[in-house]
Design a protein around this nucleic acid. Sequence first.
DNA 1: CAACAATGATACAGATCTGTATCGCTGTCA
DNA 2: TGACAGCGATACAGATCTGTATCATTGTTG
Lengths: 194, 194
Amino acid sequence: MSHHPQQAVDVRERILRTASELFYREGTRAVGVDLVVAQSGVAKTSLYRHFPTKDDLIREFLLREDEDFWRKWDEVSAAHPRSAEQELFAQLQWLGDRIARPGYRGCPQINIAAEYSDNNHPARKVAVTHKAEMRARLKRLAKSMDLKDPEHFALAMGVIIDGALSSGTALHQKGPARFLQSLARTLISAQRGA
Amino acid sequence: MSHHPQQAVDVRERILRTASELFYREGTRAVGVDLVVAQSGVAKTSLYRHFPTKDDLIREFLLREDEDFWRKWDEVSAAHPRSAEQELFAQLQWLGDRIARPGYRGCPQINIAAEYSDNNHPARKVAVTHKAEMRARLKRLAKSMDLKDPEHFALAMGVIIDGALSSGTALHQKGPARFLQSLARTLISAQRGA
DNA sequence: CAACAATGATACAGATCTGTATCGCTGTCA
DNA sequence: TGACAGCGATACAGATCTGTATCATTGTTG
């Protein structure tokens, strides 16, 4: 804690940042530790001092993604304390924007699940937890909106979000980003009307 | 053609079958050609005689997936000549069943896109074509159903299908399979009512 | 039977990948 | 000043991966 020299966290942080960018852009299996070392400008020894194995580094990469994702989510949530419906559309707004960004290359969690078939891979567990957290939050929002079946709404909305995130602009063209809110509107009115 | 000994197509077929199963189950980057050779019981030389590079083999794997997928689709389509709506629900039925199958490990096309970032990878092009074909067929169905905006329906339905296919039962539990038809019903009635 | 085409078996080249071992340097702090 | 912790640099071990070279074997076909 306070005994750690400042240099230490800088090196660790630089490695994780560089690795995260490369892992997301190229895929974790396509990026070797030597490339991470070269790009981050640290010694290979330092990488293995902070991350025992490459799998640990990959896991930390996904954990960082998780933190950033929910931090953003919480910010947006805090900005819409009145209406859960308004919050949902605001969440879908920045999700759509993210998908439409130039460097977007799919959902990190889904990509990891595609790269590693083993359910016991440490990074895969992080991915599973992420999706469960998403469903829990969607369910909470559905309850606040007084929808008839919050569980059903959360699962359906989760599928829609995954579909938009999964391939993004790569397999689809500009499509997914614009349809998130449209689909949510349809789902909501279906659970209100009749 | 008629000059080819029968053995030739058998060997090629055995290689492709084995590779396809391994590639889908473990991921293409996780499976080496040596494993394909060992599992299929052929000589390594034979593999490289029929497939110049591993990327070619991966591409053929996705092409085969494509063939099987649309053959199944066409069969179901032929079984429902009267109502486009009935056909759509039948298509979503077997898609849902496929997702719920024990060995299901995501959408092959999305998985390939996750594994290879290069847009010029031969297998990726097959994946992009596959998704475009899916949208085209959905749009045709939407037109037959006399929906207001077939293009919008096709894109939205495509996102939903991708979401259900992408992570399947791995990141979600039993969810996606059951919601395909439910979501389609909601979408359709939204484009009919009012 | 003889020519030939396809396969099998094996060894190997060359690259790449994860992880380790070793040593020297530097800044901190008692 | 002197012990020490963290980092950098380099070399390397050991495994794995794609792709090739070589040669024997088999089955078909004229």
